[in-house]
Design a protein around this nucleic acid. Structure first.
Length: 161
DNA sequence: CGCCTTTGACCCGCGC
DNA sequence: GCGCGGGTCAAAGGCG
């Protein structure tokens, strides 16, 4: 869940768009991106919320097997710094679970909501409870400190090459 | 010139 | 078998 006006979210990686489809339940299209590194098959799906155009839903699929090229774009490097992890084995990358996926959501949320007010977030949650029961409680912002990720992330990765 | 987006077509799984 | 919905391909064009 990310609050942003643009689809192209700077999360520290380069993405190449490879498709776009209209979704049901939403007047907005859904975009499909792939990581530009060929060794890295991470995909993401970006879709805009159907009534709040300022909210985009980003779904990550997979884990990056390389380091962030964020420095090439003059990025802030905020994420790249906290995501410094040793490259995991490809075999362990397959079959990621829900917990791994959930982990990704607050990452974009924390980076792009820094300038938004608490007011907006509260209103958004209320709106979600109203009509969108398909969005579960886990997908709300209950990872307020992304420093926690520094403890979580290495636990997913084998620390021996 | 290289990288990226756009966009229609194609593919595949699923329900009837 | 057919239609539909969701995901992907690839040619063509844009832009720094």
């Amino acid at each position: 869940m990310t609050k942003s006006e643009v689809d192209q979210l700077e999360d520290g990686y380069r993405w190449r768009k490879y498709g776009q489809k209209a979704v049901k339940n939403s007047p907005y299209p859904r975009s499909y991106y792939r990581c530009t590194s060929q060794k890295c098959t991470v995909k993401k799906r970006v879709e805009r919320s159907f009534q709040d155009p300022t909210v985009v839903i980003t779904t990550y699929e997979g884990q990056h097997t390389h380091q962030s090229p964020a420095t090439l774009r003059g990025n802030t490097g905020l994420l790249g710094h906290s995501m410094m992890a040793p490259p995991p084995r490809l075999s362990t990358m397959r079959g990621f679970n829900a917990a791994e996926l959930l982990m990704q959501v607050p990452i974009t949320a924390t980076t792009t909501t820094t300038t938004t007010t608490n007011n907006v977030n509260q209103g958004f949650q209320g709106y979600m409870n109203l009509g969108q029961t398909s969005l579960h409680e886990h997908q709300q912002f209950h990872f307020p400190d992304y420093g926690l990720l520094q403890d979580i992330v290495p636990s997913f990765l084998p620390n021996h090459p």
